[in-house]
Design a protein around this nucleic acid. Structure first.
Length: 260
DNA sequence: ATGTCGATACTTTATCGA
């Protein structure tokens, strides 16, 4: 099964790019982030016509996540536990029956957290702590678990073109990386790093300053796997092509092939 | 040094968030 994650930066602005890529790549499951629309405005029928079941957790203007799956959802659960006052649409969890058993899927748009030293950074770290708690609970089930999405975390210096410039950025702060490492330490595998050890492989390039042309990017979109899912990992690839299309998202899709 | 894009609103330009 092919599982993809892609921050599309606005579904309304990305309808053509999204359908073109989904048709060509034909993932079994796609996790979309930053749909930037309410549930009712998501072009559900468009993806249903391509053979997908659709689950949406959106909000007006910002954030928002959606799941596309060729197999039906057994359960869909929006919102990350741990803070009932958190109204930002950044988390969508689903259970899907696969040939090898159950697949638990978490689709996240982790808070950006900039600028460092503000409430936004505090919210980011608190959100990461809440995510760790939820993952810890799910890992106890010893099932296939995939945590996919835009983590807004640069895990290591080799995942950014110029680490020195990013030292005080919320995506690369030591506190952020420590929280990400704590998540991995629960027993998750970074699928891309399990398949590739070359540095400077990116999933995001800023729109500004010709960042893509200069290959000044970041690796911030990740697929993290439970031990059971990691055992079934066959490949993980970043598809940078859509970044050079017309009207691109600033992120590109990352996909993993799992023998589920 | 600057450079972009998407969505929103007391809209047609400014603001926010990224």
């Amino acid at each position: 099964m092919k599982i993809a994650s892609w921050n599309i930066n606005g579904i309304k602005a990305r309808i053509e790019a999204a359908t073109t890529w989904i048709k060509a790549a034909a993932p079994d499951i796609a996790c979309l982030q930053e749909i930037k629309c309410v549930d009712e405005a998501f072009p559900r029928e468009m993806f249903e016509e391509l053979g997908y079941n659709v689950a949406v957790h959106g909000q007006k203007g910002f954030n928002g996540v959606a799941l596309l799956s060729k197999l039906p959802f057994d359960e869909v659960r929006p919102r990350l536990a741990g803070d009932p006052d958190d109204v930002q649409a950044r988390y969508l969890e689903a259970e899907i029956s696969v040939p090898s058993g159950a697949l638990r899927l978490i689709n996240i748009y982790l808070p950006n957290g900039n600028p460092f030293g503000t409430e936004k950074f505090v919210y980011k770290l608190a959100w990461m702590t809440r995510l760790k708690e939820r993952v810890k609970t799910l890992l106890a089930n010893e099932e296939n678990l995939v945590v996919a999405g835009d983590f807004n975390v640069i895990p290591a210096p080799e995942d950014v073109y110029n680490p020195n410039v990013w030292m005080d950025d919320a995506l690369f702060r030591p506190e952020t990386r420590a929280h990400f490492q704590a998540l991995l330490n629960l027993g998750l595998t970074d699928a891309f790093r399990a398949c590739h050890d070359e540095p400077h492989r990116y999933t995001f390039w800023d729109y500004q300053a010709g960042a893509f042309q200069k290959n000044q990017g970041l690796r911030i979109d990740h697929l993290l796997l439970s031990p059971q899912a990691a055992d079934r990992l066959q490949a993980c690839e970043i598809d940078a092509a859509p970044r050079s299309w017309e009207k691109p998202s600033d992120h590109v899709p990352i996909t993993a092939e799992l023998a589920l």
